[in-house]
């Protein structure tokens, strides 16, 4: 016993080093595997408060850009409105179509990273505002990611620029589906994997969300085909996509809640049993 104690006392620095290194290594390994609760994330009062303070200063420098983005979006929505086939009477609102399936919340991005191999965003809405795990996050131009961790006032978003992300997507023209991955090389590009090689892919085609999950509705833009090549196996394409979104400049985002999610999930669980 005496000897064990002596050993511990003699090597206390090394043992402490091993302990601390072990803890951090365990946290690192855990952070590389998806769908597990994480202890270390920026959805908490301390980091949210600090980022919030600095964001309130920083956003003044970005106002012009954000304004342009909003004007662009307004232009697009106006175009849809004026060119729609049905004439819209401004006094008549059909409530059966408004807010029927998706609930939209706006949020400000407090922290955005795009140069790491696993990128996360921090936004200023949380449990208090009804945000929960696996809600979809988009901007006016395209998808951004999926809500990962939430605290009372803040949430972290698993960016599409994250090696753990795998979103269901499809070709706009033909409905051929694939899985959206990121190889960590460029913040402007993502890859669509496992697309059947019967799909008539052309450079410049639009890729959009597939609507097979209850995270994103069908038809939200992702990007355009830049190049594609056949896999080693020869059966599938891997498509290089240039994102519509500039992931390095995201100011405001929309969070989508699928109100039918529970129903869909219950149904899927039943049929799986």
């Amino acid at each position: 016993m005496q000897q064990i104690l002596n050993f511990v006392i003699r090597n206390k620095t090394f043992l402490l080093f091993l302990l601390l290194f072990g803890i951090s290594l365990a946290l690192t390994i855990q952070s590389h595997s998806y769908h597990r609760s994480k202890f270390i994330n920026s959805a908490n009062g301390l980091t949210g408060g600090v980022y919030g303070t600095f964001n309130s200063i920083e956003k003044y420098f970005d106002l012009k850009d954000q304004n342009n983005i909003l004007v662009e979006e307004n232009k697009y929505l106006r175009k849809l409105l004026f060119n729609s086939k049905t004439t819209i009477d401004s006094t008549y609102i059909d409530t059966t179509f408004i807010g029927s399936r998706y609930n939209v919340t706006i949020a400000e991005v407090y922290k955005n990273s795009y140069s790491l191999s696993n990128n996360y965003l921090t936004i200023n809405k949380g449990l208090k505002h009804g945000i929960k795990q696996d809600f979809g996050v988009i901007t006016s131009k395209g998808i951004v990611g999926i809500v990962d961790n939430t605290s009372n006032n803040y949430a972290t978003v698993l960016s599409i620029l994250n090696k753990k992300s795998g979103i269901n997507a499809k070709l706009k023209s033909t409905n051929h589906i694939g899985s959206l991955r990121w190889n960590g090389k460029s913040a402007q590009h993502v890859q669509l994997e496992d697309v059947s090689n019967f799909a008539p892919v052309k450079v410049g085609d639009t890729i959009e969300t597939g609507g097979e999950s209850s995270i994103f509705p069908k038809g939200i833009g992702i990007g355009s085909v830049e190049s594609y090549l056949t896999d080693i196996s020869g059966d599938t394409f891997t498509i290089e996509i240039k994102l519509f979104n500039d992931m390095s400049n995201i100011g405001n985002v929309y969070i989508l809640e699928d109100l039918d999610r529970q129903e869909i999930e219950t149904l899927e669980n039943q049929s799986n049993e």
Partner: peptide, 12 residues
């Protein structure tokens, strides 16, 4: 790590 959502990379 807490601020940059990187697990335990910086701590290690």
């Amino acid at each position: 790590d807490l601020f940059s959502d990187s697990g335990g990379v910086h701590a290690a």
